[in-house]
Design a protein around this nucleic acid. Structure first.
Lengths: 343, 343
DNA sequence: CTGTTAGCGCTTTCAC
DNA sequence: GTGAAAGCGCTAACAG
């Protein structure tokens, strides 16, 4: 059917070993025969089989990426970052989309093992607590380097690149304080995720350092998604003394907040200041100058790919856990400004 | 290193063929030995090598997806649709992101061949005319089923699933006419893409059917992206008699139009009606009730995956081209309403 | 029902 | 410099 290395060998009048050598530059081949071989390859339109090569070398040239939601451009950016540098080093990518479902995640990990992938970069599902032991067992049994990206796991210590969420929460809060706010509400992510916990930690730290009392009514737990954030925002106005600023701990929750504020006919930041987490695509074109803490997911992708490469290279310190924390950037556009109105 | 089928065979006291049989259910195995085998597999934590299996069967269980921009949630949706049904039938996905770059696309196709993938689903780069012959040659030489999705190629006839763009342009235009508009501007995509051509065709047809003259100043060629659409929208107002409605032929161009209108302090639809193509994520929460033609990219993904499966199944009518056109849906939210103001 | 054997298409010693 | 041969981990006749 398809042309193989032996066909080329026969046609070129040499052995298949020689073909292999010119293909891999693995040892010197007389210039003359090399050219002959190359010519035949060209003529017969031969493309070596990655599968056969993998089997023979006991090593693939592909890695796995596991993400919870391929539809979210945040993960799109991460993948773009990964694939950019993967392409440079000749690595292919097998993609798994889990829909934030642990069962799928576990299945993906099985596939990774089946395919003997070189390594995996994954951002685990959030809000998962029930399958921890399954997960840990799978990881242990897999014997393939894993790099976490963007989301950490509390119950197992793995390599990965993360955003410094404490710093994120701290910076966002500090920015609001600096601009005059004292009544600052926060809508966190699910508290079973470390990022939610850490951002809240940063929030509290900033308040404490500025001797601003921490008010529990100002702290609300969302789920990283729009609807709950929308409701929670409205809830803020059910108490006598609502905040003058809100911190929304994800981009989708930021949209929930905005939706609520638009409905309430409240202007940003005149009636309510706002700082989000991660860019809200093109929100500026509708006249909202949103300030936010920026993760730079593409950078996360690049760094995680580099980390994986690093781990792959260093066999000696095998098993050593490497973790990288990337500081988020504060992007100030105006939505954080304090107007001193009493609400 | 890793445990192989022979290890299992030895441990279970049978031949590796038997192991293979229980693994694949390829023929009857005595219940007793089957159980024994399964137990050993479990104990030794054995996972069969997909690579070895592929080589032996001369067939992979993975397909390729090639998209121009993984960062665009439109393609995220397509991939989600594909992977959903791919998972059901046990197929894995190798992903290639081309950044809308033909060279990358060609390289991706090479990889596809190297890996002997079962098939490819791709949406080709747009606005490419220079590498046509390379592309055709690569396709011809690849001998692997290809399914196009969402974007067609004019210079080669391939299987694929597409959106009925003529109908899209027609419906969008008709909706505006029905709601009272006669002066309708359109910002098209790059005219080297068939979707741009066809939407414009639909636009003209609708006008003709309603005896509305086609005015060239109302037709502007964009590039599917925001910035140009923004400029072109402003251009509309440089002539004496601007349109009362605009059709924007992509979601990013819709944003460009909106950006321009916001800057010009024009309300939608009171000062300018608007119909877009494809959903603009969450635009409603900022108070713009955008009407648009909806592609349903996830459906495109599902249908294209099913088409590929179809092609894979039917070896007899090999080479037969199968094309599916999906009618887009008109989603009316209010932004198309005519207010009868003279601008 | 199960074992033997011959590959699948490459890479990699080991000779010459 | 190049060829012969073994082997990567599995599947698929073919016997029995």
């Amino acid at each position: 059917m398809t042309v193989t290395i032996d066909d080329i060998a026969k046609q070129a009048g040499v052995s298949s070993a020689t073909i292999s050598r010119v293909l891999n530059n693995s040892s010197y081949v007389k210039e003359e025969t090399r050219e002959k071989v190359l010519k035949v390859i060209e003529e017969m339109n031969y493309v070596p089989s990655a599968i056969a090569r993998s089997l023979s070398k006991r090593e693939t040239s592909t890695i796995g990426i596991i993400v919870p939601d391929i539809t979210n451009s945040y993960f799109g950016e991460i993948i773009k970052g990964i694939s950019k540098i993967a392409e440079d080093v000749g690595l292919n990518i097998i993609l798994f989309n889990t829909n934030n479902n642990v069962k799928s995640e576990l299945k993906a990990l099985e596939e990774v093992k089946k395919h003997r992938l070189k390594g995996v970069i994954m951002t685990p599902c959030f809000g998962n607590t029930e399958f921890q032991t399954d997960f840990i067992e799978t990881i242990r049994g897999i014997n393939i380097p894993i790099v976490l990206v963007s989301a950490d796991l509390s119950y197992i210590n793995l390599s990965g690149v993360f955003v410094d969420d404490v710093m994120g929460g701290y910076e966002a809060t500090s920015a609001l304080i600096k601009s005059g706010h004292k009544k600052i509400g926060i809508i966190t992510g699910i508290m079973s995720s470390s990022s939610a916990v850490n951002r809240l930690k940063g929030y509290k730290r900033a308040l404490e350092e500025n001797d601003i009392p921490i008010i529990n009514d100002y702290i609300k737990e969302g789920n990283f998604d729009l609807d709950i954030a929308y409701e929670l925002t409205k809830d803020f106005f059910k108490r006598k003394n609502p905040p003058t600023a809100i911190i929304a701990c994800s981009n989708r929750m930021t949209l929930g907040v905005i939706k609520a504020l638009v409905e309430l006919k409240m202007k940003i930041p005149n009636d309510m200041a706002l700082i989000g987490f991660n860019k809200v695509e093109l929100i500026d074109i509708v006249g909202i100058d949103l300030s936010y803490m920026e993760d730079s997911p593409m950078e996360l992708g690049e760094v995680s790919m580099n980390l994986l490469l690093d781990i792959l290279k260093s066999r000696e310190d095998e098993g050593k856990i490497k973790r990288i924390n990337i500081p988020p950037k504060l992007i100030l556009k105006g939505s954080e400004i304090f107007h001193g109105k009493s609400l």
